[in-house]
Write a protein that binds this DNA or RNA. Structure first.
Length: 283
DNA sequence: ATGTGTTCCTGTCCGC
DNA sequence: TGCGGACAGGAACACA
């Protein structure tokens, strides 16, 4: 589920609770998620202080005072929740252990961070801090969509001659990293581009228009605390609310929100994934 | 190299 | 209620 805005929301929720705080204990309740955990992961986390929480694409990076960085990917169903801390005048009590609580971080400030992932498409790994450029999970990622190296000229050059549908191209993390199914659908709606259109056949002008729209959609979603689908929550249990702003995602049969458009939102399947769009407004 | 389909896993929902 | 099938925020992998 989590795309860039959800991961950023999780990072922002966790940061004030864990930055500068020691991990007193790490419970690792199974040997793997999508891949095996790194050797002696619990030992390499225990007693270490989290210096800083960063984000790269859909990865949360926790820099430790041991010189290692913990990488966390939430996959489709990964969740991180905080308990044992106080927000305003509300104290979040520790809940009972739940099914699929795979890793639990006990912090020196009595907060507890629980990683729960029913589908186990998530991942955790450790790398030497500062070696992102070479690290297998990070090295092939394209630019951050909210960063300076992602711009109109880059996207035009990158999509030139590509035969793949624009929907697939924007989901390709090597081209731009952080978008997922929801936000690609929303971006293409705002750009008026049909998801099935071949990337290389779209005019440079229309490709250029995608760049500010990608930034706009992601920034709006971050401001809304991400999208809460099914039971996704922010770290403090609050719901994000960007899902109320979906124009097309999961809106099959609902009216197109464009003024004067009489059509309803349609769905097609592209490489096994749903694309939602307005057949009138997106060409 | 590029494009496409499959696969990992669990949970939920919908029709019968 | 039960059962089967479709579908779900990701992305590596195998194969044409």
């Amino acid at each position: 589920m989590p795309e860039l805005p959800e991961v950023e929301t999780v990072r922002r929720g966790l940061a004030p609770v864990v930055e500068g705080v020691q991990i007193t204990q790490a419970d690792v309740n199974r040997p793997d998620l999508r891949w095996p955990f790194p050797e002696r992961m619990a030992d390499r986390l225990t007693g270490k202080t989290v210096l800083r929480l960063r984000r790269r694409s859909k990865y949360i990076l926790a820099d430790l005072d041991s010189g290692e960085t913990l990488l966390i990917h939430l996959g489709m169903s990964g969740r991180m929740t905080i308990s044992g801390h106080t927000v305003g005048d509300f104290h979040h009590p520790h809940p009972a252990a739940a099914k699929h609580d795979h890793v639990v971080f006990h912090m020196a400030n009595d907060a507890r961070i629980t990683f729960n992932d029913s589908r186990r498409f998530g991942a955790m790994d450790l790398m030497a801090t500062g070696t992102e450029a070479d690290f297998w999970l990070i090295r092939d990622l394209g630019p951050e969509p909210l960063g300076n190296s992602f711009d109109e000229d880059y996207l035009v050059a990158r999509l030139k001659g590509r035969n793949t549908p624009i929907k697939s191209a924007l989901l390709d993390q090597r081209i731009v990293s952080g978008l997922g199914n929801i936000y690609v659908c929303e971006v293409l709606y705002r750009a008026g581009i049909h998801p099935g259109r071949k990337a290389g056949e779209i005019s440079a002008k229309r490709i250029r228009s995608l760049v500010p729209l990608i930034r706009e959609v992601l920034n709006e979603a971050i401001a809304a605390g991400g999208s809460s689908l099914r039971d996704y929550r922010q770290t403090d249990g609050e719901l994000g609310y960007f899902q109320h702003n979906f124009a097309v995602y999961d809106q099959v049969g609902n009216p197109c929100p464009t003024d004067g458009c009489q059509r309803t939102i349609d769905r097609i399947v592209q490489s096994g994934r749903s694309s939602f769009f307005c057949p009138q407004c997106q060409r």
